[in-house]
Amino acid sequence: MRITGAKTISDAELRATRLINKLELRQTHPIIFEFCKAELLADKYFHTDFEAGKSIAEIIRQRTGLTENGGELVEKAFSLKNPMIKINDLANETKESEHKGFANLIKGVFEMFRNTTTPVPKVNWDINEADALDILSTISLIHRRLDINIKLSTMSPS
């Protein structure tokens, strides 16, 4: 289902408010609102998802000091041999698999929702409200898991 553009300012405001309300009901991570406030208020699904995708790389760079982008950034930050970010203690094969899966999820988001939108004009990238909400929810989940890492890394050993 493709959503048609708003024809009046009132229509646009109602759509933007509806999208923001739905994100709040999903308990979307606050960083989504921080990185995408202008896009959410303008009710631009394409740009909202694009900016949200960039927020992941920015947080990883802030946390690690790395300057890379995309898959290379994720590979270095989440390396099993020398991880700069860990989502768990990597104490067993299951936890290592979870860690690798999380890194792959981030790379997948970059490849599907961020990198693919870069060279494509927004008129050629069809996105509706439901897809935008799902993409933003996935990015929100990634940010919550990155927050867990912050809590793990700041805890002193017992």
Rank of each mutant, 00 (worst) to 15 (best):
C36Y: 09
V120K: 07
D131C: 01
E93C: 02
E129A: 09
Y45D: 09
M155K: 10
V74D: 06
L14H: 08
E96C: 09
L90T: 10
T28H: 10
E75K: 15
I85V: 12
F50W: 08
E24K: 14
H47S: 13
F78E: 10
A42G: 05
L41W: 07
K107A: 06
E58I: 00
G71L: 01
L14E: 14
S55V: 08
I142W: 03
K100G: 02
R63W: 11
I87G: 04
F113L: 10
F113M: 09
R61H: 05
T64C: 06
E75G: 03
K44A: 08
S55Y: 01
N124S: 09
K86V: 08
A16M: 03
S97L: 14
P157F: 08
K81L: 15
V74Q: 04
L66K: 04
E13R: 15
N124F: 03
E129I: 13
F113R: 05
D43E: 12
N69A: 12
L66Q: 03
R26T: 00
D147K: 08
M112G: 03
V109P: 07
E34Y: 11
I20G: 07
E111C: 08
N92G: 10
F35Q: 14
H143V: 06
N104L: 07
A77S: 14
I87P: 04
Q62S: 12
R144Y: 09
A52S: 09
L73G: 02
L152A: 02
K7W: 11
A16G: 05
L40D: 08
A77F: 04
I60A: 02
K54G: 15
E98S: 11
D11Y: 00
A91L: 11
F46G: 02
P157R: 07
G101W: 08
F110R: 07
N115Q: 12
P119Q: 09
E24G: 01
K54I: 00
L152T: 00
G65Y: 00
A16S: 15
T117A: 14
G65E: 04
E75Y: 10
R144M: 05
S137V: 00
G108I: 09
E58V: 00
I150C: 01
I150N: 05
G5D: 14
I127F: 04
I9V: 15
N21Q: 12
W125E: 01
T28W: 12
A77K: 06
Y45L: 14
M84Q: 15
N124D: 13
F113G: 04
K54Q: 13
E58Y: 01
F102Q: 04
L14V: 14
S156L: 13
Y45P: 01
G101T: 06
I59D: 09
I87L: 10
E93P: 00
V120Y: 00
I139W: 07
I106P: 13
S158K: 13
G71R: 11
K122R: 06
I32H: 03
R2Y: 03
R145W: 03
T64M: 05
D43M: 01
T154N: 13
M1K: 11
N128L: 02
L141N: 13
